[in-house]
């Protein structure tokens, strides 16, 4: 599977201009001899992340976004460069209920089909973040079939709770696709922002624990002084970073993904199998089921 993670730097609120810029990137990718199979974009990729009340002006339905992405691909890449799969993070208007969502789209020469929409479960609402003031929470995480095997979509803070990637892996995901928008914090690292380092640690730990690929797409650019830290990553199923983008600026990460590596990694470190075996005992713990950790 030929993968592109497109780290974009959108102009705040300018959906049409950002989609036109993405069209140019689609044309760039389509100009390569061997076609891409999957293109992954960050969270809030076509609007910018911090929108406050403007989220209601810019949110759109998954179907409307799918239509625009499909048209943009065909117009810029050429209908003969399909099929391609596209993942994008966006603010979703679901008949008046608003979510921070990501969709997985299959585009062919004539139409596009949504394979899955994931609604962000964990809406950060502390410090600089204010998502739940404007948005509703998603309720579940799924692993869905693609032509490359099962995958899960998780958005940003979803991945900061170890149980979420664990559930995705237990449901059969062989790749976790993580659109994200992370504002920079912490300068005391060794040449790397503390917040970026934390992401790197989390992604590598989850990938190696469950033997999954992680495709992390980070939004870039400054939003009212808050610098979004790009740092897109392709992490392999042994927890190895296979490709990493810088924090600043737009770019494309390109990778050939061999899902056979997942089986090899799991054979060598069968932690996911062990978890499957013990999970029923853990889940029958009454204290856990009652939602009381004490």
């Amino acid at each position: 599977m030929k993968l592109a993670i497109v780290q974009v730097k959108p102009r705040k609120g300018e959906f049409e201009a950002n989609l036109a810029a993405l069209g140019e990137t689609f044309a760039q990718l389509a100009a390569e001899e061997r076609p891409y199979d999957l293109i992954v974009l960050p969270e809030a990729a076509l609007t910018g992340y911090f929108l406050e009340g403007a989220v209601y002006e810019l949110a759109l339905s998954a179907e409307a976004l799918a239509q625009r992405l499909g048209e943009t691909w065909r117009a810029n890449a050429g209908a003969d460069r399909a099929p391609v799969d596209i993942v994008a993070g966006f603010y979703e208007n679901a008949e008046g209920t608003y979510y921070n969502s990501a969709l997985y789209l299959h585009v062919d020469g004539r139409a596009q089909h949504i394979l899955h929409v994931h609604r962000k479960l964990f809406l950060p609402t502390y410090g600089v973040f204010d998502e739940e003031r404007f948005l509703s929470r998603g309720r579940r995480v799924d692993a869905f079939e693609t032509r490359f095997g099962k995958m899960s979509l998780l958005v940003c803070e979803d991945v900061w709770h170890a149980i979420v990637p664990t559930i995705a892996a237990l449901k059969g995901a062989r790749a976790l696709i993580v659109p994200s928008a992370s504002p920079a914090r912490g300068l005391d690292g060794d040449g790397e922002l503390e917040s970026v380092r934390r992401w790197e640690e989390l992604l590598r730990a989850y990938a190696s624990e469950h033997g999954v690929y992680i495709f992390y797409a980070g939004l870039a650019g400054f939003e009212g002084g808050k610098g979004m830290t790009g740092s897109s990553r392709i992490v392999g199923p042994r927890g190895e970073t296979l490709a990493a983008a810088p924090a600043l600026g737009a770019c494309v990460l390109r990778g050939d993904i061999d899902f056979g590596e997942v089986d090899i990694a799991r054979a060598n470190l069968p932690l996911l199998g062990d978890l499957n075996a013990v999970l029923p005992d853990l889940l029958f713990d009454e204290a856990l089921r009652a939602g009381r950790g004490q």
Binding site: L187, G189, D190, G191, G221, F222, G227
Partner: peptide, 25 residues
């Protein structure tokens, strides 16, 4: 809490802040 900063990183980040906010935006 540490007050040490990676000055090279800080300089690069603030340069990008100024050029993004002034020129691009």
């Amino acid at each position: 809490p540490s007050l040490e900063i990676d000055c090279g990183l800080a300089a690069r980040w603030l340069e990008a802040f100024l050029s993004d906010e002034l020129i691009q935006r």
